[in-house]
Every structure is written in structure tokens, then in C-alpha cells.
Design a protein around this nucleic acid. Sequence first.
DNA 1: AGCCAGGCAAGTG
DNA 2: CACTTGCATGGC
Length: 298
Amino acid sequence: MHSGRIPLADVAGGIDLAATLESGQSYLWRREDGDAYAGAVTSDADFETHPWYYAVPDGEVVRVRKTPDALVWESTTDAHDRLVDRLRLDDDLPAIFADAPALELVDDALEAFEGLRLVRDPAFGCLISFICSTQMRVERIHEMVSNLAREYGDAVQFQGETYHTFPTPPQLAATTEGALRDLGLGYRAPYVHRTAEMVADGDAHPDDARGLAYEDARDELTGFVGVGDKVADCILLFSLGYLEAIPLDTWMQTVVADHYPECEKGSYAETSRALRATFGGEYAGYVQTYVFHHLRTA
DNA sequence: AGCCAGGCAAGTG
DNA sequence: CACTTGCATGGC
């Protein structure tokens, strides 16, 4: 077993691990103490109760937990660089928010979840997760993605426990729409299956959007079945590093209506542009993630 | 019982 | 292009 620690002194702006991994951005991490995912955030005062979180990237199990002064990890391999990448520990939060817009809603959200970071998920898992996310509560999305891993991923043993990788495109393409419906995916079952086939057959890959201009990248991703503008923005923000992307979900539509009605332009692309400008442009997606989590946990 | 959940595809006008 | 409709499932 490999293990290590990443001092919080080396993480500019710190990290709120629970908020980061339970705020509905990533469904590829699980909390080890079960299906809690109720948004409960433990305080640093009782850090002994802080749960382990785990993911299984590339067949390697990585467990991580927060202590008052460090992130502590255990893994089947050296996981340091992987954690820095997946949890975006190199993001300098104070620098990113130095020019955040002076809006009451934004100030409140930034203050409430200091240390909330964006994640950098593998593109295929992120793509499938967010196809599953439509018209579904965060807790149930975690459940659906866990079911996919358990049924179709590879089992990996670590410290006497069994973990499962997220399925590869061929593993998901090899199943059937009916089997996916039986897992509780509902009308998303054919979307997941057809998109997995597209990737498995080599017709397209979400990584193909890398390097494109933001709105071109969004259009590229909507070529997958089950991916519209909103889901595309989630993939751009939570996997591909387009920090200006702001997914316009029902919560953000409410934010526009209640706080920034002048941003309502009648179409996703135009309203998105207006809200992006309001949220400061370059890091608008970072701001959006705080606001989303703040509203959802209120 | 009815409404809602991090929407999307397919079909019209 | 804008607009409407159907769509699975589960919790409250």
C-alpha cells in the first residue's frame, strides 16, 4: 500500500473536501461511510469524523480524507500527482476570486464554502454521469453511477474491500438498453447506451472538444446522444477545464429570474453569455459552482 | 395524489 | 429558429 499526505499549507485557499465532492460536480467519487450524500458537511472541529472518499481511476484505488492540516491518502499506487490533478489542488483560489464580482449572492456563496474546488474528472465518466443527471436529484445520480460501476466496471481489491472502476466505453456499449433501464436509468438508458457505442466505435470522444473555443467545444459535445447545452457545459466545467462554462440548470434559471432578470435573453446561448459576464467571465464557472451549492444546501 | 428533480430528443409551425 | 410534447423513476 502507498500512502502520503498533502499539507494544506501547500494548497492555496485550502480545500473543503466534503463540499468539493458532494456538491454535484463529480459522481466518480464515493463517500466510504455509505450513501449519505445529503450535503452534510462536517466541521474541522470534529475532524476525527471526517469520512474517507474514494475513486478508482485507471484501476487504481485512491482513498483520501481531510485532517486539520493536510489531505491524507492511501492508494494502490503513488496517488499524489493524481490527487493534485483530480482535485485541482494547484488552483490558487484567492487569486481566482480576487476579481470576483461584488454581488451579494456571490459574496455569500464564496464565504459559506471557503475551499470548495472544482474537480477535473475523466471525460468519459463525466459524460455518462451527466447524461444520467437530467431531471434527477444529486443523491440519485450518485446511486445510478455507483450502480453502473458495480454492474459493468472491473472489481479491484484493496485492503480487504472490493472497489469498482467506472466502466469503459466498450463495457457500457456491450450492455443493452433494457439492462440499463433495469438499473433505474429510465429514459436515459438509450442515451447512455448509444453514446457509449459512439465512443467505443471510435466515432467521437469527449476529449475531442479539448482545445476548441468555448462555444465551439459546447457544440461539439452536443453531438452525443443525451447531451444538450446544459450537460455539455457540465462536461466542459467539471472535466475539460473550461472554467468560464456556467451550466444553466433549473437553479441558475431561478437565479437569473430572481436576481439578474436583465440576463434573460430568450435562448440558452445568449442568456449564458450574459450571466457569464455577470459572474466575471474567465472564472464564471467557478463562481457558479459556489452559488449552485450555496442555494442547493440553503 | 400531484409535483419536482443540475434536460433532452423528436416533432411541428 | 422558436416552441411543444413525451419521457422513467423515486421522494416528499
